[in-house]
Nucleic acid binder design. Sequence first.
RNA 1: GCUUCCUUAGCUCAGCCGGUUAGAGCAUCUGACUGUUAAUCAGAGGGUCCCUGGUUCGAGCCCAGGAGGGAGCGCCA
Length: 576
Amino acid sequence: MQQFDKLYLLRRELLRKKLAKVEALHKWKVGSAGFQPARDAPKLAEAGAWHGRQGGLKRAAIKPPTAPNIPPPRPGATFTVPSAPFFDPTLLTCGLKTRFTWPHPPLVFAMSIARSTVQQLLATPADHLDREVLAKGWVRARRGNKYVQFIALNDGSCLANLQVVAAAEHFSDEALTGVANGAAVAVRGRLVASQGKGQAVEIQATEITLYGGADQETYPLQTKQHSLEFLREQAHLRPRTNTFGAVLRVRHALAYGIHKYFNDNGFYYVHTPIVTGSDAEGAGQMFRVTTLAPEHPPRTADGSVDYSEDFFGKATNLTVSGQLEAEIAAMALGKVYTFGPTFRAENSNTARHLAEFWMIEPEVAFNELPENMNLAEDFLRSLVRYALEHCAADLAFLAEHYDKDLLERLRFVADTDFERLTYTAAIEILKSAKKKFEFPVDWGTDLQSEHERYLVEQHFKKPVILTNYPKEIKAFYMKLDEDGRTVRAMDVLFPGIGEIIGGSQREEDLGKLKARMAEMHVPEEELWWYLELRKYGTAPHAGFGLGFERLVLFVTGMANIRDVIPFPRYPKNAAF
RNA sequence: GCUUCCUUAGCUCAGCCGGUUAGAGCAUCUGACUGUUAAUCAGAGGGUCCCUGGUUCGAGCCCAGGAGGGAGCGCCA
């Protein structure tokens, strides 16, 4: 009996599905013909926004049923469509009518009005004005009198604010309560040519909705300039300022430009690990990663911490460089780059260092030092050009407020060949310089900041690439020169920044690499896989590291690296 | 890690040789003003002078220690 019931229900369900399918075949459909500009229906233009793909008009063709055994409809047949608001071009009326006579021209649907960004609204051509729009953002300033109020609206899409005009005839004082500096609002109204000076367009508001107010007694940001030090303590709110909006948009453009440059030039983006089991990357102090209890870690017989008990079964750290792993990828994919976070547990207290920063590390198989220099120079100049092209308004703002010569300097770097010379030649120049240095200049010691600055800012007056440093002051993996004294290293020095790129041709000879590791006390066991790259199919290759924030620092003209990353990490500071 | 400077109203800063009730601009609040745009004008409120101790008849100011911040240097990207 039970089984019979089950079978009955199953057959009923199948029948229902079949009927639904037949019904669907007989249905008239409203096709989607894409979005059409307002010219298709001048009357409905009133209701739609011009901007973007949203909020506009949708023209939809009528599609009769197309099932194989159904004859095509005869002229005069009636049909129904879903009862959405639409515009009937044959009648020049709007409505919710659902019955039509075949054949029928396409219907025009008014889409619900959607938000436009301030950037889109400000870029509206003059012949597309006088339309209803919806903007959402944060109030930057409100001023006016009892007849008319002006609200500067910013939504982060660009530096500029949109002026919202709220006339007293539409808005009482109470209606604008809370619409003050810092508040989030939605504004509906007509986008028109501005009556005032200072902006091309403005919104004559018809409706202002307050999402969230901001208590004027306690809101930290005011309609005036704040010091960068103060804003550093307000890292959760500083993106709402002109300065940090501009910096963050430039930062984004540079990040995108980096991926674009490499993609356009046949590089593959490889993701190197953030947690690393090797502590021999040779680039500085590392942050330990562990799940062991800090108070009572397990200990071995000799009393040291027993990392075999740890999460990974060994001691692990945050990466200081993706270079060694990038070399693995380069020896397979040819041209690769990494772009990821990097960590240095060094007690560096300067305006050019962070404990957590982003680094770009290209690595190219078969490249030698000259090709490496060409890549670094072309890469940097392309990025500066990209920023000049895509961030004009933001860079102009930063130039005006922080660095008068910014645009001039960026254009200069974009257009000028870098000076290339060896470390040895640089030492000669410094020794014969009239300037007195605090630190002595001697072949074999690393150059001090003052020496680098002299070369870049006073002697050559342009970016400089220094090459062939003494082997003692450079990392173990750099290729030894024929003289056995220097290595094929290169540092790119920029005005105001100092070292922006450090790179080299890598040692591809297994024997020489092992000898260098022994000299510099780098344990071979840890890097057995790195050595195997030289054991199997070794080839010349080269690469470099670019500190992303140093690039942003240079392009924005900001003075402190803590102001070009949203949440800076530096000694004694990990707030936010 | 080293050197050096700074800490006074919500913000940016004055504050003389140690002297009576600590000031300005901006911001906030109230009012005025028919299109402002760093709006303007008038008025009002707003202070643990970073903290602790000391010197002194008397300390925002001098001394010692501590905390926080900036700049420069080192390490580097």
